[in-house]
């Protein structure tokens, strides 16, 4: 594997870290959705780099997978944003309180 590929893999790994951290830790839902997109980008980068496999011409299957993945990510993001807006209109907040996930937060975890 060429040194150049290692650099890209390092970038992908860094983006994965940022993305996962953001999804789990960020408070505002918009931040969470952005972090999810960052994570998606990292996975697509991983796919493209691994798809080269040292060859001069890139693997078309990897490219096709990334294209499909982008379509999925765009639709999921649009859906997530719509959901966030609906939640904001009903509750006045764009954040999930009670990260521990106790049902209804009535203290009975």
């Amino acid at each position: 594997m060429a040194a150049q590929d290692l650099v890209w893999l390092g970038v992908a790994a860094g983006l994965v870290g940022l993305g996962v951290y953001g999804v789990l830790v960020a408070g505002h839902l918009l931040r969470k959705l952005l972090a999810l997109n960052l994570l998606g980008t990292a996975v697509f980068l991983l796919m493209v780099v691994l798809g080269r496999r040292g060859a001069a011409t890139p693997d078309p299957v990897s490219q096709a997978m990334v294209l499909t993945g982008i379509v999925v990510a765009v639709s999921a993001t649009a859906f997530g944003l719509a959901l966030m807006l609906a939640l904001y209109r009903r509750s006045g907040e764009a954040a999930l309180d009670d990260e521990a996930g106790a049902p209804d937060g009535d203290g009975r975890d």
Binding site: G80, L83, M84, L87, R90, S91, L96
Partner: peptide
């Protein structure tokens, strides 16, 4: 809505 968001 909150549960759906968390699920998503």
């Amino acid at each position: 809505l909150a549960a759906a968001m968390r699920y998503l």
